[in-house]
Every structure is written in C-alpha cells, then in structure tokens.
Write a protein that binds this DNA or RNA. Structure first.
Length: 438
DNA sequence: TCTGGGGTCCTAGGACCC
DNA sequence: TCTGGGGTCCTAGGACCC
C-alpha cells in the first residue's frame, strides 16, 4: 500500500470475443461465444451481447447454446489473441519496467517504477486515458478497462468496476469505503467453495467479512487464505508487482469426446502429451524433475499420480515412460474422460536420471502415436481463417456432411457474403491464423 | 450430452534427517 | 517403557484464476 494510486491494472474487455468481432464484421454488435465447440466444451469468453442472455465463462457449451441459440459459436484463434496481447503488453512496458502479466488479457503495472514521476491523480488518469486510446488504435479497436489504486488488490477491483471500456481510480484513503458494499465474492481468491463457507457465516458483502475475526477466518479457511482474506477485507495489501515470475510447471491434457477405457489408446495419448510437454521444455531451455499423470473419471472425480526422478530431463521418451508407468498403476476399466501429463520441479540444468525404471515394457511399443482417438475433428472449425482462390480471405461459418460454409470478410471489409463448398474443394485452404483446439 | 485447458497456490500426512 | 521437535522433500487432492 502506498499513498498514490500508482498501481495500474489493465483488463481487455471480453477479449477473445472482441478479437473475433474485430476480424468478423458481420458479428459486430451480435452475441459471440468463444469456447470448446465439441460435445464437452465450455465457454471461454462471451461477448457482452451474449452475456445479456446469461451466458458466461466456464458455462458448458450446450447450456450456452440453449440460452443463446442465435449466437455465433467459435472455436477460438489463439494466434490472433497472442498477437493482440503482445501489442498491448508492449505498450505497458513503455510505462514501467515493472509489468506483471496475469494472462493474455490482463496485467499489473507499477507506475512508480516508471519514467513518469508525476503520480498525482490527474496525471495517472491522463496516462490511463492515453493508454486506452493507444490500445484501441494499435489493436484495431479493442477496448480495455483500467483500474488505478494504491495496491494490486484495489487496482484489480477498480478495473472490475470500470468495465466495460472505462477507467476507475480509487483515491488512497477511500479504499475501505469503496469495497464495503461489494459482494465478498468480488475478492480474488474467493470462489464458489469459499463463498459457500462464508455464506454459512452470514457473510454477503466485504463489510460483513470485516465483522469476522482473523482467528475465525483462519479456523474456517485455513491459515494462508484466512489471513489473506482478513487483510483484504480491510483493503490491506502489500504485494509487489512482480515482473519476473518464472514458469513452475508445464502440462498438456485432453478431454475426450467420449470416455476411453482402452489402456493402449490411453498410453498412446500419454505418449503424445509427453512429447508435447518435452518439446516445450526444450523450447524453454529447462528440465523437469517431476512427472505427473492426471486422469478424470466419468464421475468427474480426478486422480493424480506423480513421480520425482533422481535427475532432471527434457526428453520425451523419459517423460513418456514415467507417465506410462504411472498410468499402469491406475484402474481405467470404467473409462476416463480426461488424461493429462505434466512436469514440474523445473531446473535450468540437465541431469539425466539414472534409470532403474523398467527399460522397455515388452510388447508395448508405441506405434499408435497418432492415436485412434474418438475425435476425428474437422480442420474446418467454426471461426477458422480460410482463403479461397477466387473469393479471397474469409472464415468458417460452419461445416458438416461434406460441406463447409464460409463468410468472406475481414477486419477491413464490410460484412461479406456467404458461400458453401465441398470440404475437399482444392480452391479452399486454411488461413494464417487457424484455430487452436480449445 | 452436465462440467476445458493451462496454470498457481495451499493443505495435510508421511518419510527422513539432525 | 514411553517416545521431542523442527525442517525439508514428496505425494495427493482441491480451490481458484483467466
């Protein structure tokens, strides 16, 4: 906490959906829902037009379709999101060397560490307004909400209050009264489980939370979160903006369209995940000591098994072998809905483990690396960028039964026409920013 | 047909060591 | 013949965030 509102929190509004509306003029002003388009998908981001129908993040996609059947349902294009994010983060870096990204669309900036020495309220408000204008200009019209306050906690609350498309400054000294009436659930770290416990204690607002003693909160929520919450209830927060956070784990997981009970198929999936995880280790130039296998069962309960090596590795074969051996210890007879492989205990130097692990499980060679997984996903995912030899650039509006429907428009055009093609039409190809599988 | 994917942090128990 | 106590590492599970 400090006596100036010099911590800035920026949050891009409905980020993924806003990028889609920017690049797809026919969707501007309309409900857009980005998320997993498969049977078991959930909503990643809903545009404000879709939120009116009660659609929100983490909602199962089938529920979103029920609530807002006329929305555009898109698979998401992470390359495009990463590019927009890179531009915005670059702008924040101009304000201060102390920038702490929280995700693609959110970051803290410590303005007190930056070049501008004027930290009075008028100055930081002007800075925030300039920033928002620059963000919009450089990203093709994306809007950001900005919070300014004396701590991370208050800056984040402030940007929440500013949404969408606004600025909010909380003057130092007024923090406690600003948050008093807000729901306790507003506090980052208070999720559904914590809120349920608090409700039983009669807590609705942050002011109610202040009525509970520190000891009471610790008894109810444990030492760390009890203490933390008690502090935040009084708007006390000393956490520094940390621009040097290092990655602590890397993982890959996949929820299957249908549960899989075939151990060989699951082993092949584990191999595939292990290969991806290892390649990310190599790319990051780090090595991992611990391998974790995660399985989600049909009843949605999950199991994790981990093993710490006597060394550190970045080799796919090693990660895969450990993952397989952990999988062997699990009963997958009832089928699994998700399988994941992760690594942690990351270090900067290699120290290949001395193997006393099973050298090669006989008869278990990996020939199904391209696993016969029950998801023959089309490359024509809704929202994907495509190019047609005659009609030019567009995006996948929908596909099925051997056909793909494309709308031909880009960020720079007016809403464009729709045409349908055979999925194997040689004139049609994927564009630059193909959707990632969410 | 309920419920993603990629992370971080915390807790609690047991092993192990001094 | 009653058995401390602290610290660290590892494992498993769970809450939470975007």
């Amino acid at each position: 906490m400090r006596d100036t509102a010099s911590i800035l929190h920026l949050d891009l509004d409905a980020f993924f959906a806003a990028v889609e509306q920017r690049d797809k003029p026919s969707l501007r002003g309309k409900p857009v829902i980005v998320g997993g388009v498969g049977l078991r998908g959930v909503v990643s981001t809903a545009s404000y037009e879709a939120r009116v129908y009660g659609v929100g993040s983490a909602m199962p996609m089938h529920e979103a379709r029920r609530r807002c059947p006329n929305a555009a349902f898109l698979a998401g294009r992470f390359d495009a999101y990463r590019e927009a994010s890179r531009i915005v983060m670059g702008m924040l870096a101009q304000l201060s060397p102390l920038v702490e990204p929280l995700s693609l669309d959110e970051a803290f900036v410590d303005l007190a560490a930056g070049p501008s020495r004027d930290l009075d309220e008028a100055s930081v408000l002007r800075l925030a307004a300039d920033l928002r204008a620059q963000v919009s200009a450089a990203t093709g019209g994306l809007t950001a909400s900005v919070g300014l306050a004396s701590s991370k906690f208050m800056a984040k609350v402030a940007s929440e209050l500013a949404k969408p498309d606004g600025i909010r400054l909380v003057s130092p000294g007024t923090e406690v009264e600003v948050i008093a009436g807000l729901p306790a659930r507003t506090i980052p770290g208070v999720g559904p489980a914590t809120m349920e416990r608090l409700t039983k204690l009669g807590v609705v607002t942050i002011a109610d939370l202040r009525e509970l003693s520190r000891a009471e909160l610790i008894r109810e929520l444990g030492k760390a979160s009890g203490e933390h919450l008690h502090e935040l209830a009084f708007a006390r927060d000393n956490r520094a903006v940390n621009s040097e956070r290092e990655t602590k784990s890397i993982s890959m997981e996949d929820t299957f369209e249908r549960d899989i009970a075939d151990a060989k198929v699951l082993a092949a999936v584990a191999d595939r995940h292990a290969a991806k995880v290892a390649s990310r280790l190599v790319k990051a130039g780090v090595f991992a000591r611990t391998v974790t296998l995660k399985v989600r069962l049909p009843d949605f309960s999950s199991i994790s098994r981990s093993r710490t090596l006597n060394g550190a590795t970045d080799r796919a074969e090693v990660v895969a072998q450990v993952a397989r051996s952990l999988l062997d210890g699990l009963d997958v007879g009832q089928g699994v809905r998700l399988l994941g492989v992760g690594v942690s205990g990351l270090v900067e130097v290699a120290q290949e483990p001395l193997f006393e692990l099973e050298v090669a499980a006989p008869g278990r060679v990996v020939e199904e690396a391209e696993a016969p997984i029950s998801r023959h996903r089309s490359i024509w995912l809704p929202g994907a960028d495509v190019v047609h030899a005659e009609f030019g650039p567009g995006w996948v509006w929908g596909s099925g039964i051997g056909r793909v429907t494309v709308r031909f428009e880009t960020a720079q055009t007016k809403p464009g026409p729709v045409r349908t093609f055979a999925v194997d039409d040689p004139a049609l190809g994927l564009g630059l920013s193909a959707p990632d599988l969410l």
